[in-house]
Design a protein around this nucleic acid. Structure first.
Length: 845
DNA sequence: AGTGGCTGCCC
DNA sequence: ATTCTGC
DNA sequence: GCAGAATGGGCAGCCACT
């Protein structure tokens, strides 16, 4: 086995002067260096001697250091295969030697502490981290800011604060600390999360500092203890780095949910937990130890010459048929395990339950009826998402004439996955957000509505439905803005206190009366939804709910408005226009029936074929001359199988709909992470010609910025130059924004967004909004389109122009708004006329 | 009691 | 949410 | 085409401070 520490740069300990304080509290003689996780998992030895834990003391559970060892390896590569190998090998070691650490390790890897719906929040951010770093290391605030600007990562700041650099050693830890363990670190993070009430911020900080000291102490111990041979010197300073990254929920090692799940599936398959005997395994994903040994033997014989750094299984040509067959069987088994685990997680996204199942019964455990890891009432499944489409035209091209599909209005509200069931005569309802947070407490009005609906219909026993909760006018049912919905209270909400009425627009049904529907075609699911959960009576005819006094704002239930494609293309076009006019974001396109298309490859060039899945052709020999293939378009609700199963068409994606705004870059911040060397985001402003000043409107980030663009920006706005200063020097009002640097207003950018918003931060059009004179106008989802080379800064959009756009936006979707469209058109035409005039001057051709 | 900073969540 | 990038 | 990273506006909730 190759020793990773030999091939990685070993950072010397500097300035770690302190007296050693005796032997460590455990026997170190049995410990060997951490293994090289980058090797191909099929050649990796996770077993060694299973009777003890060879990589750490047998009296302790797995150290955090072995996780950090893997994280460091992950950081050194971007190869997906290598990343998967490293994680697989790490998890195999844990499965073999400390299965209790598997679950906490998965949480530490995934920037979370529990399933989202349990609502456990760390409550630690940059502020506490910053204070903790200053007390646990001797770093000055100035040095810390400089490190942060340079590296754009608080974990990296911690690293350099601990190990120092060639000119400035920084650590101040004076004595060894017991090493962090995966399990105890996880437990400590849960303690931090549970701190609340007066003094909780201080307590959080103290707990973070303790963890830092342990992480730093491990480094110190490794470097200094004379009674201890440092077996993993490459880890010096790394525990603080990843501890801090974990605390800010941003590990940045190129692996989040999908890769972690793949690695877990592979780990469990290659290293079955002790409780699972190989012979007990059945089914297609069973892996034979004979195959495994053949593969391992050959791969290990090939040795480290086969690019071990990348962890790729480079099979030399000319291997025996025996090897090739065994290898393919093993790969097939791994792939199958991967599929089973990912499907299980999509339906039951809880590491807690999934890990219990696989440690107990292997991957098989996920298929067993007794497993808790299936679709379950009360546990949200991952939502099906939509992939963006640029036009109706594109949708028609993609789906072709045969497919049956429908278009639904895409309302601008909040995704709501609703579970409801009876248990011992009691009805329970829960509401989950898109990211599976439990929002039940935010919507007591919806809960009441759902419970009432079930009480009124005793054929309804249980259901899971997908819906959008949207703010509405309680008397007319007219749609209200997302911002109004966002203003609702979230905790301890009493129905009597609710100010903003909501309508729950249902659009899918995943379970009904105990029957799982997600594999049924949408046409069937939609029929069941519409049959079993009819809309509440319209507001105009009176809500029949007697349990809520009339004076209260009440929730309503409805189905999303939709149109089937068979109504014809003109009807669909008209529906799309109507959707936009009624304050919807656009459309969602969904297949009604499973469809098989014969597609000409040439016809689909440049198209997004996310909805398509290749069918395994029965003939093993594909005709090479013909370019047509058959494709399956499933109409099932299968979260995560296809990453975006539906198509979404939003107005702001479509050329020619919505307005763009011409803004001037007037400031910027230092980028984070991979953008640490660049300006990002950029502060953008309008030009107020009456006052001769620029007024900040929004920030703009990578959207539309390529890396090349960032480099050019660095050249145009080098720090401390006549175009870029740390102090404000130009006529710019920044409002609530505080950029790190100010740019000299010099160029005009065309910016687009989805909507204009009333903003407490922006000072664009400040004073013009009739009901909120102290607020400006900003932009939702701002994105850079292009530089307006043809415009000088005096021709940037004006506050009045933006105000008029806002008025136009607000006047949509009903009778409210009270502006004269005629005036508006005049105004906008006037502005465009000025622009045209300028363009004709600047471009005589 | 009011305000401001921080955090996490929605889109 | 959106967009870009490397694999 | 997938998977990951880096970033937008803006809200409530919570806590610390005045």
């Amino acid at each position: 086995m190759s020793n990773t520490s030999e091939s990685l740069p070993c950072r010397p300990a500097r300035g770690l002067s302190a007296s050693s304080s005796g032997p460590l509290p455990f026997d170190t003689s049995a410990i060997i260096p951490f293994p090289d996780f980058t090797v191909d998992p099929l050649a990796f030895e996770s077993g060694l001697d299973a009777s003890r834990s060879p990589w750490w003391s047998q009296r302790t559970s797995a150290p955090y250091a072995i996780l950090v060892h893997a994280l460091q390896a992950l950081t050194s590569t971007r190869s997906r295969i290598a990343i998967l190998s490293i994680l697989t090998n790490l998890l195999r070691v844990l499965v073999a030697h400390d299965p209790d650490s598997v679950r906490p390790a998965l949480y530490l890897l995934s920037n979370s502490l529990s399933p989202a719906w349990e609502g456990i929040e760390l409550g630690v951010g940059g502020s506490i981290i910053s204070k903790a770093l200053q007390t646990t290391t001797s770093i000055t605030p100035t040095a810390m800011r400089a490190l942060y600007k340079k590296h754009g990562d608080p974990g990296d700041v911690a690293y350099y604060a601990v190990v120092g650099n060639s000119s400035a050693p920084r650590t101040s830890v004076l004595r060894p600390h017991p090493p962090l363990l995966i399990q105890s670190l996880y437990d400590d993070l849960r303690k931090i999360a549970s701190a609340k009430g007066e003094g909780s911020q201080k307590l959080r900080q103290t707990l973070v500092e303790k963890l830092m000291l342990s992480a730093v102490g491990s480094s110190w111990k490794s470097g200094q203890s004379s009674s201890y041979v440092d077996l993993n010197p490459h880890l010096l300073g790394e525990e603080p780095r990843y501890l801090i990254r974990t605390l800010v929920h941003n590990l940045r090692v190129g692996a989040v949910r999908t890769t972690i799940l793949s690695a877990l599936a592979r780990a469990i398959t290659l290293t079955p937990p002790r409780e699972v005997t190989i012979s007990s395994l059945e089914g297609p994903q069973k892996i034979s130890s004979a195959d495994l040994n053949i593969v391992k033997g050959v791969l290990q014989a090939q040795g480290p010459s086969t690019s071990p750094r990348k962890g790729q299984s480079s099979i030399k040509r000319g291997q025996s048929e025996e090897f090739t067959n065994a290898y393919e069987r093993v790969q097939a088994a791994l792939k199958q395990a991967d599929t089973i685990l990912r499907r299980a997680f999509a339906q039951h996204p809880s590491y807690d339950d999934v890990v219990v199942a696989v440690l107990d019964q292997g991957i098989e455990g996920l298929l067993s009826p007794s497993s808790r890891a299936g679709l379950a009432l009360g546990t949200p499944l991952l939502p099906t998402l939509g992939s963006p489409m640029r036009s109706l035209e594109q949708i028609y091209e993609l789906l072709g004439p045969q497919a049956s599909w429908c278009a639904e209005k895409k309302y601008d509200g909040q995704r709501a996955q609703v579970h409801a069931w009876r248990e011992n005569g009691t009805i329970t309802a829960r509401i989950f957000s898109r990211h599976l947070e439990n929002m039940t407490d935010k919507y007591p009005d919806l809960v009441h509505l759902i419970v009432n609906t079930m009480e009124a219909d005793n054929t309804l026993d249980s259901f899971i439905v997908d819906a959008e909760a949207v703010a509405i006018d309680p008397s007319t049912g007219e749609l209200r803005s997302f911002q109004e919905l966002a203003g609702r209270a979230r905790k301890d909400v009493q129905i009597a206190d609710i100010k903003v009425a909501v309508c729950l627009f249902l659009f899918d049904m995943m379970l009904l009366n105990g029957t799982v529907l997600i594999e049924k075609p949408f046409r069937e699911r939609r029929r069941l939804l519409q049959t079993h959960l009819p809309p509440t009576k319209s507001l105009a005819t009176g809500n029949t709910d007697e349990n809520i006094p009339h004076k209260y704002v009440r929730a309503t239930l409805d189905h999303v408005e939709s149109i089937d494609a068979q109504e014809g293309r003109d009807a669909v076009q008209e529906f799309w226009e109507r959707a936009i006019e009624s304050k919807c974001e656009g459309l969602m396109i969904k297949l009604l029936d499973d469809t098989v298309l014969t597609v000409d490859d040439q016809d689909e060039q440049g198209l997004d074929d996310t909805m398509e899945m290749e069918i395994d052709l029965p003939s093993p020999q594909k005709p090479s001359g013909k370019k047509s293939r058959r494709k399956a378009l499933p109409a099932t609700y299968e979260p995560d199988k296809r990453t975006s199963a539906w198509l979404k068409l939003k107005k702001d994606y479509v050329e020619g709909i919505g307005d763009s705004i011409d803004m001037v870059p007037v400031g910027a911040w230092h980028g984070n992470g991979r953008k640490a060397a660049w300006w990002s985001p950029i502060l953008l402003a309008l030009y107020d010609s009456e006052r001769g000043i620029f007024v900040a409107m929004c920030k703009c980030m990578s959207a539309g910025f390529t890396d090349a663009f960032y480099k050019e920006l660095n050249e145009r706005y080098p720090i401390d130059s006549d175009t870029c200063s740390k102090s404000p020097q130009w006529n710019v009002e920044t409002g609530g924004y505080q950029p790190s640097v100010y740019f000299k207003p010099s160029e005009v950018w065309e910016i687009r967004g989805a909507d204009l918003t009333v903003s407490p931060t922006s000072v664009a059009a400040l004073g013009l909004l009739p009901d909120s004179r102290d607020k400006g106008v900003s932009l939702r989802f701002p994105r850079f389109i292009r530089i307006r080379e043809d415009k000088n800064i005096e021709l940037a959009s004006s506050p009045t122009f933006v105000y008029q756009l806002w008025v136009k936006q607000e006047s949509k979707g009903g009778t409210r708004g009270g502006v004269d469209e005629g005036d508006l058109v005049d105004y906008i035409e006037e502005e465009e006329a000025i622009e045209d005039e300028y363009e004709s001057e600047g471009d005589p051709g």
